[in-house]
Design a protein around this nucleic acid. Structure first.
Lengths: 133, 133
DNA sequence: CGGTATCCCGGCCGATACTG
DNA sequence: CAGTATCGGCCGGGATACCG
């Protein structure tokens, strides 16, 4: 409210993602990371097994999927449920917080998918007007 | 379910971010990239000059900010307005599409900032239960 | 099936110096 | 002020092999 406030856009929350040292920035990067976004988006429909997820997120390697899932599980966005059967079966599903995050991510994804023609034509304009410098 | 259906969650849009080759994935990565998210978030309040932006997005280097701005401008999310004065003055502002994107990003950011205590305690639980392996 | 371990390369990214 | 140029380190991330 008063002029001592440094960040007009922030509420009085203790966490500020624009500050380099804030832990929220790390979590934001897990969530918006290359594979984090797609993994959370894929899990929004329901729980999936490791290899189902791998097929769904086209192009992800075992290593990166595993790594991404660990980070998201650690942050409390994904729940891992392993059944000690043989062959093993492990299901991944979103936690309630994970769902809230995924909703916002999907909102962004759908917006972009729906506006890609605009993006593509913007690129073309940019490339042609800059190409002849 | 049946083999003709590849993506249950997608509408019949031509762009599918889950497919490796889809150009929408590239744009998603510009937007959700390490600096893309913060840059768009910072510009949501209003137009900013290069160095204002740099101060606002704590930790970004000149190089990365410049690079990020170019990518976002090319995708039609940011508009660059240069005045040929001396000293030079350049203002960056969001396009209408950029605003729509930034809104969704800020929704995500605010959610995370507000729930970081949950995230932090989830991490602690994860680390302690896994630490004694 | 559901992962982990290891190797290793490209490019992300920061630091520094320079230009208009 | 608003960038570009260049160098170099570090690490994201793919390939492969292996384990329970």
């Amino acid at each position: 409210m008063d002029s001592t406030q440094e960040r007009p856009q922030a509420q009085d929350l203790p966490f500020n993602v624009f500050a380099k040292a804030c832990p929220s920035r790390g979590t934001l990067e897990h969530v918006t990371g290359r594979w984090g976004t797609l993994t959370l988006g894929a899990l929004h429909e329901g729980s999936l097994r490791f290899n189902e997820l791998r097929r769904r997120v086209d192009g992800v390697s075992e290593k990166m999927l595993s790594q991404t899932l660990h980070a998201l599980e650690r942050d409390g966005l994904v729940h891992r449920e392993a059944q000690p059967t043989n062959p093993p079966r492990v299901d991944y599903e979103l936690t309630p917080l994970g769902h809230e995050v995924a909703e916002r991510l999907l909102s962004l994804i759908h917006l972009l998918e729906g506006r890609m023609t605009d993006v593509l034509s913007a690129r073309e304009r940019y490339d042609t007007t800059r190409g002849d410098l």
